[in-house]
Amino acid sequence: MSGAGLRAWLLDPVPASRRQARIGRWYRAALAFGGNGLAMAGLLIVLALVLIAIAAPLIADPQAATLQSLTDRLQPASWAHPFGTDELGRDIFARTVFGARITLTIVALVGLIVVPVGLGIGLPAGYFGGAVDAVLMRLTDIFLAFPRLVLALAFAAALGPGIVNAVVAIALTTWPPYARLARAETMTRRDAEFVQAAVLQGASRASILFRQILPLCLPSVVIRLTLDMAGIIITAAGLGFLGLGAQPPAPEWGAMVASGRQVLLDQWWVATIPGIAIFITSVGFNLFGDGLRDVADARGA
């Protein structure tokens, strides 16, 4: 198929098959997203972050990230240390690069908890309605009404500091909107024709929920997750700043800012550079998420 022919096939206003219609829809969405400069910038930032995290050992010396060298303490930027060194003489550039791994791990883990929990509560609530719905949604409302950071703080305090506990603490306060979303999506889909058809064919409730309805809920859940990523990163950095996240000597960005606090006035870069990394990362996720949402809204409209 020629390029033009493929394009025509993708954009065919009267698609010949359901498959063509679906692929065409994705193609059009991708075109709309690609036409949005800010969203593309966001995507690039996120991709760059992922690349940096994967290729961290190639970009910076893994040892330099944790290697203490008291003679090199608090050096300003130089060829050897592009971002200078911190109060223990560690290379801030290497620490920032390796910090990307920690940040991405945290958002990925939070996502891995929040999406299944949200779906697990929202799908049955929306599908069965009645008492199931009432109980599950009350539970959700209770968690929704909680102060997020403070609760995460209390949890982190109770569970002890550390990355895993920070992840659990953040996840505990992040899932409720996902349950709400999944419930709303399920309610609009459960009476759809193909769901009814599956019911008539004797499919079990579980199979209908997970085979038919779940895939339909996923796109909006994923978009919501992308929109939340920046918030998760900032909360995680906040816990790290307070000493409740990754423990030393792990190069966690929030903790790095905290360690630069003592020398803020004389060696400003120690606290400033990891903060810029947090900032750029969350700008990237925010732009990316906004772009995805715009595309989804336009498709829904």
């Binding site: 920046a230 900032i234 950095a237 906040g238 700043f241 929030g254 800012v257 905290a258 630069g260 606090r261 803020l264 006035l265 400003w268 606290a271 400033t272 903060g275 947090i278 900032f279 969350s282 700008v283 925010n286 732009l287």
Partner: peptide, 22 residues
């Protein structure tokens, strides 16, 4: 406003202190 909700408040506070106080 994008910058506002992308910035960690503790970092902005430190940068603010550095700039406007110090």
């Amino acid at each position: 406003s994008l910058f506002g909700y992308s910035m960690p408040v503790f970092w902005l506070g430190l940068v603010g202190l550095l700039l406007f106080y110090a």
